[in-house]
């Protein structure tokens, strides 16, 4: 492993730790202060009446925030590693070789899930404001968002992980 790759992996670890830390902040504050974050109860509620299923919108908010931060944190690293191209193409190639490795491909699948969910949910929130959608309509859309995310994530992951499986 070259020095540049070592630096990249170090920075990447920092990014992952930052995202995990942020997720912890979101979920701990959820449990402590906002009446949310009770997983077992939430799962039980999803099976019941329409009003109870509103819990899904709360979890969508947590997921939207965590995925958004995750993408942004990775973006900070990504802008720098692509910028290496202007320093020297061989340096860029050296670091970029890591992106093709199996562990990084797994990360790329996680990134894909984050991107799909954040984009689709973001479009859903835009629809809420533009079309003045209430609780029921927005929950129906959320169902669509979740399904599409799963489909896109599975399909995309199959393509990304194909070369190493």
């Amino acid at each position: 492993m070259s020095a540049a790759q070592g630096v990249f992996l170090g920075a990447f670890t920092v990014v992952v730790l930052a995202v995990v830390g942020f997720a912890a902040v979101v979920l701990v504050s959820a449990r402590r202060i906002d009446g949310g974050g009770f997983v077992g109860v939430a799962l039980r509620r999803m099976a019941r009446s329409r009003r109870e299923r509103a819990e899904a919108a709360r979890w969508a908010f947590y997921a939207h925030r965590i995925s958004g931060f995750g993408i942004f944190a990775f973006l900070c690293l990504h802008v720098v590693d692509v910028s290496l191209y202007a320093v020297s193409p061989s340096l860029y190639d050296d670091v970029h070789a890591l992106y093709g490795t199996a562990p990084m491909r797994v990360f790329e699948c996680a990134l894909l899930v984050a991107i799909c969910f954040h984009t689709l949910n973001g479009l859903r929130l835009l629809a809420v404001d533009v079309a003045d959608l209430g609780l029921t309509a927005s929950l129906r859309l959320l169902g669509g968002v979740a399904s599409l995310t799963v489909v896109a994530a599975v399909a995309g992951s199959a393509v990304i992980l194909g070369p190493v499986t």
């Binding site: 009446g35 509103a54 919108a57 709360r58 908010f61 209430g134």
Partner: peptide
Amino acid sequence: HYVYGCSA
């Protein structure tokens, strides 16, 4: 942030 906890 569109949580809809209020209306629910």
